[in-house]
């Protein structure tokens, strides 16, 4: 029918025009406005909550990093080894034996504390970039790290406590320790002369 094809044509033209208008408004103006607010009001957050050490950017406090060796607190296992250009997890269900095999391997790698590892130490995160570990896992690592760095255990424990974040407002989320921030503090501590 002529009238119906006319309707289609007219509506399609309106659709194209509206999409163009919206592209300007929602695709350009809206993100730009939010960006401007970020520049002015929340510069640190907007740029990724970067952590500096010795004036150099060593990472983002929001992103976990790969730490190896006994001198560092270790974060959780990451499906992407904290590469940062991709994110994601293993997607394995508990019914999958691979998951249990991996857990066993992690216990073994952890040595003496292997049998006491809390769940977050035996599993991988959803993002592969989880910056946090549980206070229990941090506490478990503290003596080893202290020993490796020749620091008193109490000092390291104190450091852990300083970097433990409780639940937001007392009930939102979980208590946690940001591994990068903890390690940065640890390194700073190691670099200052000990008494």
């Amino acid at each position: 029918m002529a009238s119906s094809s006319l309707t289609w044509r007219r509506q399609t033209i309106a659709a194209v025009r509206l999409l163009l208008v919206f592209t300007v408004l929602l695709g350009v103006a809206y993100p730009a406005a939010v960006w401007a607010v970020g520049r002015v009001g929340f510069h640190d957050q907007a740029t990724g909550s970067l952590v500096r050490h010795d004036g150099r950017v060593v990472g983002s406090s929001l992103l976990g990093q790969q730490f190896t060796g006994p001198t560092w607190f270790h974060g959780r296992a990451s499906a992407s080894s904290y590469a940062g250009d991709t994110s994601g997890g293993t997607n394995l269900p508990e019914s999958d034996p691979q998951l249990w095999k991996a857990a066993t391997a992690m216990r073994k790698a952890a040595g003496s504390i292997g049998n006491r590892l809390p769940p977050d130490a035996l599993t991988t995160s959803a993002s592969g970039l989880d910056p946090d570990i549980s206070p229990a896992y941090a506490a478990l690592q503290a003596p080893q790290v202290a020993a490796a760095r020749h620091l008193p255990v109490a000092t390291v424990r104190h450091l852990v406590a300083q970097h433990t974040t409780g639940r937001t407002l007392g009930y939102l989320g979980e208590p946690r320790v940001d591994v990068l921030e903890l390690n940065v503090a640890l390194r700073a501590l190691s670099e200052t002369p000990q008494h």
């Binding site: 993100p31 939010v34 960006w35 607010v37 970020g38 009001g41 929340f42 957050q45 907007a46 740029t47 990724g48 909550s49 970067l50 050490h53 150099r56 950017v57 060593v58 990472g59 983002s60 929001l62 992103l63 990093q65 790969q66 730490f67 190896t68 060796g69 560092w72 904290y82 590469a83 940062g84 250009d85 990068l180 390690n183 940065v184 390194r187």
Partner: peptide, 29 residues
């Protein structure tokens, strides 16, 4: 944004991590 979500137009940059490794820090609106 106030809570810490990024809003940036810089290109993703690769940084040297604390442990000496490399990590890509993404960016974006």
């Amino acid at each position: 944004l106030a809570g810490g979500v990024i809003q940036d137009v810089a290109a993703p940059h690769v940084i040297q991590t604390l442990d000496g490794g490399r990590q890509t820090v993404q960016s974006g609106l």
